[in-house]
Amino acid sequence: MQSRKVPQPGWNLEYTMWMFTRLSGLALPVLGLIGITAALVMGARTQMDLGTLMRWTFFPNVSHVTSSNIPDYVPWGGAFWQIMQIMIAFFGFTHGFNGLRVVAEDYTNPGFWQVFWRGIIFLVWLFSLLAVIFVIINS
């Protein structure tokens, strides 16, 4: 049986965030895999313990490997790893805060309280993201 095409409905917040949640859910483990693979290539197998490797995998910040036996920290820092950290923070925070928004909207109807909770969640998301980007850039 052949599939039929149907005009897609227009984009809205619900659809956009529904898609984003799925794509970010895929992106986060892929970014983690890139982190752990690169760490193993850079010598993590013999130069750091498992805990340090896991911290790096989930957030590839150079401060996570300073207590290991890595002789040269230069490959573990730099713009590439900063961009990776920002991407992980963006996908993770947005995924999580959108989950909070969905929970809040399960319990509220359109109106004041829905706008209020959306606003609070948006502001906390924005503040958290800006704070983490500040820390990444200055670490």
Partner: peptide, 13 residues
């Protein structure tokens, strides 16, 4: 089908 999908592509869909 397109009209029904439009109706269900909603916050309460």
């Amino acid at each position: 089908a397109a009209e029904r999908l439009e109706i269900l592509n909603d916050q309460f869909g």
